[in-house]
Amino acid sequence: MPTSATQVFFAAVGDVHGHMNRMVNHLRHATDVFHQQFDFVLQVGDFEPHRDEADLATMAAPAKYRHLGDFDAYHRLRRGFPWPVYFIGGNHEPYGYLDTHPEGFELTRHCHYLGRVGVMDLHGLRVVGLSGVYSEEHFTKQRPPLSALGSVSNKDFTYFNERDLEQALELKHADVLLLHDWPSGVITPEDAARFEGQRRSPSYDAVGNDYARLLVDALQPKLVLCGHLHQHYAGTLQHPSGKKTEVRCLSSVEEGWSAFAYYELAGESLYTLGITD
């Protein structure tokens, strides 16, 4: 493992869906393997921090996927996140809760929502996040106000829109970019068979969206992290400037090791570290 006076060690986590205990247990195992504690943890949406049934009622999801999960124990400080966790919103979140602070906020100790569009400096890394997923129908529309909850579909709160994208583009630079959905063009033809005929990816070149890719091309981060499809995938995007962006797509924590990735920053270099159990 590289060593440096400016060494930073962090983890990335895919969709949690309320399984905070499972996430923490996996990460504790990783710290035992690496003999090192995380400086922070980044999470790519569908975190599902439901405090109670009222929060759960504002989530967009079929009834069979609606469950409170583990977050209430963390919110009440009966359990704690051992490291600072920074997450974005996905398409299954209690936006009735999260949108009370669309600029982002600390939900409980060591648990931070980055907001609809957020930026944080974490140990010298500029981390930018864009919450939500893309919908052609909703992209040019204004999101409903929270007062409309109950009279409009919960899904109307799950999309990023044109103003969100413009706000993210105004940030101009990122070292790490958090997205829920994938950027388009990340899958190579050699890997096409993995993505054929699935509900959210009828063909490999239909995976992701062009607006997420536009943001990647504009900010040119070292690393993009995303979730949503419950598939793990690693790719690289080449920019006209000559810079390259590593893209790491993560599965859900229910699927085990493929939902997690580990990184070390030493100086200007970002290293990917791996364990598979």
Rank of each mutant, 00 (worst) to 15 (best):
T188G: 03
A168P: 00
A192W: 07
A192K: 08
A168D: 02
A174P: 00
E166A: 14
L214K: 12
S131N: 04
A206F: 09
Q167D: 09
L146W: 05
D164K: 11
V176R: 00
P189D: 05
T158K: 11
H232M: 10
S203G: 07
R200W: 15
D217Y: 11
R126A: 13
Q238G: 02
Y233R: 03
R143M: 13
A206N: 08
D217W: 06
P183S: 15
V127G: 06
D156V: 10
L149R: 04
N161E: 06
L130F: 15
H232C: 04
V216M: 00
V128G: 04
E137P: 00
F195R: 01
D164C: 13
A192P: 08
D210I: 10
L237I: 15
H239I: 07
P240K: 11
Y211W: 14
K155A: 15
Y211A: 14
L178W: 03
N154E: 14
L223N: 02
A218H: 14
Y233Q: 01
N154S: 08
L130K: 15
D191F: 07
I187A: 10
H232R: 12
S203C: 07
I187T: 09
L130N: 05
H173I: 03
D217K: 13
C226Q: 04
S203N: 10
T140C: 15
S131W: 12
R213W: 03
E190R: 13
L177T: 07
R194Q: 13
R126T: 15
R200T: 01
P189S: 04
L223H: 01
G129F: 06
Y204W: 07
H232Y: 09
D181F: 08
K141C: 11
K155R: 14
H232T: 15
H173M: 02
R194N: 08
D217L: 04
Q238H: 13
P221N: 08
Y204D: 01
V216S: 04
G227Y: 07
P183M: 01
N209Y: 03
P189E: 08
A174S: 06
L219K: 11
G235R: 09
E170V: 04
D217V: 12
D210P: 04
V224I: 12
E166Y: 15
A218P: 03
L223Y: 01
H230Q: 12
Q220F: 00
F195W: 14
A212K: 10
N209K: 10
L223M: 01
E136R: 14
L177D: 06
L225A: 07
A218F: 02
Q198I: 01
S147I: 03
L179W: 04
P202N: 08
Q231W: 15
A206I: 06
D191Y: 07
H239A: 04
S135R: 08
Y211N: 13
Q142H: 05
V216W: 00
P221Y: 00
L229T: 02
P183Q: 07
G132T: 03
